[in-house]
């Protein structure tokens, strides 16, 4: 194959991505530095106000709360997902593809539908309340829907399949002789897990966590549906700037922060992956 062909093959797609992703994203970047027009819209004068506003205590607290919820969801999803992936990897080899398929299947059903399912479960007239009452409990139940916990449960539920997939990949690639080598050298089961299996599968954990964190912190569907109308996360805040408050520059500034956080985490994840694989050749 000659050298010119790749360019012809790639150019239609690259043109599309440039026009409808790169340029719009650069536009948002630029927008973050412009002033908001008096009647909405954008006034083309340079300002740092939008970025400064992100650190305003009011908005900073929303950022922190979003990070807290996203972090909590990430940790829970990773703990549960890693356990599930470990159990799948420990199953007989011929059953693993099927188990994995069914673990990932819900991920490919509609996100809104999956979130809605939790409304049905957590509702005041929902299934959990009905079941508890049918079991004979008639006292006051704590509010389940429209709480922070409901948001966390919804996020974990939605992203768990991905975490299972991410953790399964390194676990299934693990050479079983490596775990045996640790046992052979005198390591107990727990020591082997902690010192050999866990460090070698950090990339999967990092990928899973970063994925859940990034998608959660910018999420606005789950907080809107499970957190109730008053519940604000960054996603909802951005949404509001564009669709109700009409402050596009501030919305753009918030988005830039979201992207910055994401890129920071992805860098960390790359670092974790390289460390675990021992691929840093410049160290020697």
């Amino acid at each position: 194959m000659n050298d010119r062909k790749p360019i012809y093959l790639m150019s239609p797609a690259l043109a599309w991505l440039t026009a409808f992703m790169v340029i719009p994203c650069l536009l948002i970047l630029a927008l973050a530095f412009f002033r908001r027009g008096i009647y909405g819209g954008v006034e083309y004068t340079f300002t740092m106000e939008n970025l400064a506003l992100v650190f305003d205590p009011l908005y900073a607290s929303i950022f922190l709360k979003s990070a807290w919820i996203a972090g909590l969801s990430g940790v829970i999803a990773v703990v549960v997902g890693y356990a599930a992936a470990f159990a799948i990897a420990a199953a007989p080899a011929r059953r693993q593809p099927m188990l994995l398929f069914f673990a990932v299947l819900p991920f490919w059903s509609n996100y809104l539908v999956r979130t809605y399912a939790w409304i049905v479960l957590l509702n005041r007239e929902g299934l959990i309340v009905s079941v508890v009452q049918a079991l004979g409990y008639d006292g006051e139940l704590p509010k389940l829907l429209y709480t922070e916990s409901a948001v966390v449960v919804g996020l974990v539920y939605n992203y768990l399949p991905f975490v299972i997939l991410a953790c399964y990949a390194p676990l299934s690639r693990l050479n079983p002789e490596i775990a045996e080598a640790s046992r052979d050298l005198g390591g107990s089961g727990w020591t082997t897990f902690r010192r050999v299996i866990l460090p070698m599968t950090v990339p999967g954990i990092a990928t899973g966590f970063v994925f859940v964190f990034v998608l959660s912190i910018g999420n606005f569907v789950t907080p809107a549906l499970l957190g109730g109308g008053q519940f604000q996360m960054i996603g909802n805040l951005i949404y509001a700037q564009f669709l109700t408050a009409n402050d596009w520059p501030f919305g753009a500034a918030l988005s830039m922060f979201l992207i910055a956080i994401m890129m920071g985490l992805l860098t960390l994840q790359t670092f974790a992956t390289e460390r675990a694989s021992g691929a840093r050749r410049e160290e020697s």
């Binding site: 050479n175 002789e177 490596i178 045996e180 052979d184 050298l185």
Partner: peptide, 21 residues
Amino acid sequence: VQPNHRPVNLMFQSYALFPHM
């Protein structure tokens, strides 16, 4: 006796070196 309690050591065919160490 469990493998980690035997005074016997194995050099694995794949070597099974710990890649992160």
